[in-house]
């Protein structure tokens, strides 16, 4: 698992002074965000075709070339006629002031658009993360170290779930449980019941991944002497399992959760579209098909920032939770 490796590396870098470590961590985080911003800017410039032309036609629903005067007005409005360096400097300056530009299509600030849509997406992502862990831990408890038909079936199911495309699963869940059986609402909106199906669709895939990792860790642990001794002391089998599975799931759990962020965001985009949920997914897909680059690059920037934030938290949590790391 590459992320475990990354976690360890990060930990190795944990020099002796936590403050130095922390400062370096923040600095490198800032560098990542800055690079992502530059990347986002480059995307906007790379766009083939005349940006002004696209903006005009997308807004008016027309096709075909627009009049030069119209084009000039748009070029002036967005500053496309200025040298790239100037555009870049202005772009960075605006980002520092929390301004991610204006959507070509919606005429609104990108920061505002993302701010109002990211809430439901984050709720979905966190709910799915929690549910994925619940499922992964539960199945691990049931199957680790056992060799019967059920454990085989469950671990097979885990591999299956880790592979199944979540958007496809989401469509099936929607039709079966909402449209046909009517157990859950079709239009979820913000109700807790409406969150269940999207969360499940997103969590099942992840639980497959988590389950496999935790299972490997845990199977090793079960063979160790202290487990046998715990059993000998009269602890129930389930008690032993619960105790150890939780303990040993904790550390990889933190790193894996950090790693899952990207997967969750990717998945959430698809799932939101399937369920017609409010969130970044719908906005991003619409922006992609109408080449509303400021929104797409704004989302790139925000998700890079999120990633940096989460990885700092993960590393911090690692330092706090794992005393061994401090000794190295």
């Amino acid at each position: 698992m590459l992320i475990l490796m990354n976690g360890n590396e990060a930990v190795k870098r944990v020099a002796h002074n936590p403050l130095v470590w922390f400062a370096r961590r923040i600095l490198s985080g800032v560098a990542v965000v800055w690079a992502a911003a530059t990347f986002a800017f480059l995307i906007q410039c790379l766009l083939p075709g005349d940006r002004a032309q696209i903006i005009i036609n997308v807004r008016s629903g027309n096709v075909g070339p627009a009049a030069p005067a119209e084009l000039a007005a748009i070029n002036a409005q967005y500053g496309f006629d200025q040298p790239l360096v100037v555009q870049y400097a202005k772009y960075v300056w605006r980002i520092l002031h929390g301004d991610l530009g204006e959507s070509y299509q919606q005429h609104r600030a990108v920061a505002g658009i993302i701010a109002e849509q990211i809430g439901p997406t984050i709720v979905l992502a966190i709910a799915a993360l929690l549910m994925a862990w619940a499922i992964a831990i539960l199945t691990t408890l049931l199957i680790a170290g056992r060799d019967n038909i059920w454990s085989k079936l469950l671990s097979g199911a885990q591999i299956f779930l880790a592979t199944v495309p979540p958007y496809w699963l989401a469509t099936i869940l929607l039709v079966i449980f909402a449209v046909n059986l009517r157990i859950f609402p079709v239009v979820g909106e913000s109700s807790p019941m409406g969150l269940v199906l999207p969360t499940l669709a997103l969590a099942l895939e992840l639980s497959g991944f988590f389950g496999q990792v935790v299972l490997n860790e845990f199977t090793r642990v079960l063979e160790q002497p202290f487990v046998t001794s715990a059993r000998a002391r009269g602890m129930s089998d389930f008690g032993v399992r619960l105790h150890h599975v939780l303990r040993h799931a904790a550390l990889p759990g933190i790193t894996l959760s950090g790693w899952a962020l990207g997967k969750l965001l990717s998945g959430a985009i698809l799932i939101e579209v399937v369920f017609a949920r409010q969130g970044l997914g719908g906005v991003l897909v619409a922006a992609t098909s109408s080449r509303d680059v400021p929104i797409v690059s704004g989302a790139v920037l925000i998700s890079a920032g999120l990633f940096v934030l989460v990885s700092v938290i993960v590393d911090l949590a690692y330092r706090i939770l794992d005393p061994r790391m401090k000794l190295t």
Partner: peptide, 12 residues
């Protein structure tokens, strides 16, 4: 940096 951007977003 590239890892910080979700795969699907990068694809978008």
């Amino acid at each position: 940096v590239l890892f910080a951007i979700p795969t699907l977003l990068l694809a978008l």
